[in-house]
Nucleic acid binder design. Structure first.
Lengths: 192, 192, 192, 192
DNA sequence: CTCTAAGCGAGACGGTACGTCTTGTCTTGAG
DNA sequence: CTCAAGACAAGACGTACCGTCTCGCTTAGAG
């Protein structure tokens, strides 16, 4: 039994407190205002404990993302048989979350974090769980014959989310109408 | 007896030097590393001269955007008669710029700036001139009968740009193929 | 034909406003807090008008001193026939002024100004009018035979004022008693 | 059991470097030109480390004073048996220091610092060690019967130093003669 | 009566320093 | 060996003034 390792092992309590504090402060103040010192104080933790386990602010956010700590709800697209209606409804739900309790600034902060930190960028799709929901539902639409077999579901999901992101970044004042128009057009049935 | 204001007028030389320094440093180092002190030093200007005329770092970027100082080239979509081919080619061109001389990090910085500062967000579309190029070309496509009359051109442009932004944020390793697939699908001819 | 000097002459109103503002702000805030910009604003005057006529903050204070704008009262030592009693009373009066309406900080500011600016130093004695009052009275004391003919009146006045200054600088909590002791001792009658 | 305080302790090296830099720059440039940033740079120290331990520029000077870092020599008044001669000689020595290597401006800076900052004022006498030397010697003079038992030694010392300060502030061009006259007069033997 | 050079108020300018904040590293002593 | 606490060097923040420099009046002799 070599490989002796004295002393305490990584503190689960500290990890939890740090991630909880990060998520809370990220939601409350956004990415730019988020400081390591602030998180350490809020979590009742030494700064070094953070630096020991995460290499940057972005890595913290990334872990919060994969832990699902930044999105309280996890919308799953329902299946009513009508792919366009389902996706419209799903996007409506996302917009509803955005509009109530400043989800727009949460999204903007998330985008900022992703833009500035590769770790966050890597986990963005994953964490949002968002494109997956959409592309899954569209895949079912293909199976149902409602969408053409060659529909590039991943890219379509990116386009839908991307359009919404652009609108949020440019501070559009309405999301619902334009998004509905977009979805109806790009997913409209085609006849050969 | 109108509002007379004696005294020196705003220095055009200082304004020019500041914007030039901002654009140069933004491109070289990105948004997060951009500091007011750095700009002031590079421009040979007092910090107060910056704070006198711009209320934030973001306002500076926004003005650079509207002045077209952040995008060296201004791609206009050509009209070969084939709207899909033209838009594919245009997007290819944009991707080419992104890939050479770290345009990706420029775009990421721009997105970060837009996310964190409303001024930048407001000028983003305008400054990129980007959606306009696309929607213009698509409008011609409608007139030519290549796209349906009810095609939501603004939203389609947002979707195309948005998809690209998402790919850049998530550090995709290839843009060309997915974007081509997307464009071909959403702009594909439909028959009634 | 030579040495023509066209144009308006120095504005008496501006000079008055500047000196008044200087005196007021010096008394209110002390020397260290006194700024040229503050004086200009208070006087309703351009900064350049101050710099045109005075070469430094100290020169302004010096002129206020010689104009007697910094000491509201101008104590003249009375002559009751008893030189020691008269000087004690005079010093008491000065202490009274010091103690009421923060004369201590006024004196400290004055000393700071004199220490940092030769102009102020040069006018300090003159402006306080202070040593003169004392040395005059002592000269009368010599004529009366109450003080020895060889008493160095200027130096004695400096010693008395200087002792008081030292006490004010070191934030002594009582001036009256020590000063009385000092005066009584150094001016005490001597017998051959 | 008691008030534990973990964490690093105050760096003695930093403290030493800061005080040394302060003393050096104070002597070289005077009080008004002394800046926290300059000290930090000279000491190779962060600004915050200064602000952490001293609340003002004055507090720094005060500590230099009590550490005896501002006066290279520490004159002790000798005892030849003749109190007047000894004090004259002591004052001569002080004047000698003043006159050579711009001790006058050092003294003026010190007075400015004392005038503007209570901390410095409080430590002025102590730090100069100066009045104490004088009053000690005078106390011996009393014991020897050369001075009257009721001579107010503290106040006399203040008067002597104060007269010198006044002369330095008013930029007198000679100290030696006047100071000798003053001392001889106020300490002259008296007969009942 | 016109010309013209100065004085004036206002305030922009390139700078320096302020005192605060945060970064990421290092140090201490408890557990 | 980890942890909390926090000192440290570094350096940017946004503000306050410095002393100089335009601006576009408004004067007041000289021609």
């Amino acid at each position: 039994m070599n490989e002796h390792r004295a002393g305490p092992v990584r503190s689960a309590a500290a990890r939890e407190a740090i991630l909880a504090a990060t998520a809370k402060m990220f939601q409350a103040q956004g990415y730019e205002q988020l400081t390591i010192e602030g998180i350490a104080k809020e979590a009742g933790v030494g700064k070094q404990t953070i630096y020991r386990w995460w290499k940057s602010r972005g890595a913290l956010i990334a872990e919060c993302l994969t832990d699902g700590r930044l999105f309280p709800v996890d919308l799953v697209a329902k299946n009513s048989g009508d792919v366009i209606a389902d996706i419209e409804e799903w996007v409506s739900g996302v917009i509803g979350i955005l509009v109530s309790h400043n989800g727009e600034s949460l999204l903007r902060s998330l985008v900022a974090a992703a833009a500035e930190d590769a770790d966050v960028g890597d986990h963005l799709t994953l964490g949002m769980g968002v494109e997956d929901r959409l592309s899954e539902r569209m895949r079912i639409g293909i199976a149902d014959g409602q969408l053409p077999p060659d529909a590039p579901v991943t890219e379509l999901a990116q386009a839908i989310i991307g359009a919404l992101v652009i609108q949020v970044l440019t501070r559009a004042n309405e999301y619902e109408g334009p998004m509905r128009q977009l979805i109806r057009f790009i997913l409209a049935p085609r006849f050969a």
